[in-house]
């Protein structure tokens, strides 16, 4: 039993900063936004991405599936494109969706990724999974709508409105890069270990469970 302890403690070590960094996006952010100009929007955007576990879990699920830097770049670009469209467009146009319902759909995207990674479509429906690039783009649009809803919950004022949205989006991308680096390191390092298959299955079952739990939790908040 000693062998798996090493990678597990490695995971804990990598995740530890995330735990310590895991501030909630709170009303305190409003004060930051009120006083800090465009930089504050970058900061709050990055913070939201780093502490937004649903976005990170989905990204982790995507990284599990793909191999090689080129593919990672391709999928992350598509995801970024998707969420930037709805984040910027949705906020600028003032499109408001219910935050609990959109977060519930985002939770389903986490569930979906875990299910797909475990070859759930083949096992359960005897069919091929939908094109991942298209799905990642589609889920990117949904994640962007969630980010937009969060951004719109702040009092942004009217001056430099578009620049504020773009700054928040830039922050989201920076936060995404910061979060992706440890995720990619963990997954690629673990691939070399004999325990990777167990890690792969455990992680993706966890994604399904986490997706279900978050989905139920958001619905609970919605109906509360």
């Amino acid at each position: 039993m000693k062998k798996p302890l090493k990678p597990l403690s490695f995971t804990c070590f990598i995740l530890l900063p995330s735990i310590l960094l895991a501030h909630d996006v709170s009303t305190g952010d409003q004060a930051i936004l009120d006083n800090g100009g465009l930089w504050s929007y970058i900061w709050v955007g990055a913070k939201h991405m780093l502490t937004g576990y649903d976005h990170l879990l989905f990204l982790a699920g995507v990284i599990f599936f793909i191999e090689g830097f080129k593919d990672i770049l391709k999928f992350i670009t598509v995801f970024t494109l998707g969420h930037s469209i709805t984040l910027i467009g949705g906020t600028y146009a003032g499109i408001n969706v219910n935050e609990y319902l959109i977060d519930a759909v985002i939770a389903l995207s986490v569930l979906y990724k875990g299910f797909e990674n475990l070859d759930g479509f083949q096992h359960l429906f005897k069919t091929k999974a939908p094109n991942l690039l298209v799905m990642v783009f589609g889920f990117g649009l949904i994640h962007g709508l969630g980010l937009s809803t969060r951004l719109q919950s702040f009092d942004m004022g009217q001056d430099q409105f578009l620049l504020k949205i773009i700054s928040f989006n830039v922050g989201v991308e920076l936060g995404q890069i910061a979060a992706l680096i440890p995720i990619i390191i963990i997954i690629s390092k673990w691939k070399e270990k004999p325990s990777y298959q167990a890690f792969y299955k455990a992680s993706n079952v966890y994604l399904i469970l986490a997706g279900m739990a978050l989905f139920c939790y958001q619905l609970y908040l919605y109906f509360k």
């Binding site: 909630d24 996006v25 709170s26 502490t51 408001n96 219910n98 969060r150 919950s153």
Partner: peptide, 10 residues
């Protein structure tokens, strides 16, 4: 409950 509040979701 159907819309956002100024308190952050989390």
């Amino acid at each position: 409950a159907s819309t956002h509040t100024h308190e952050a979701h989390t």
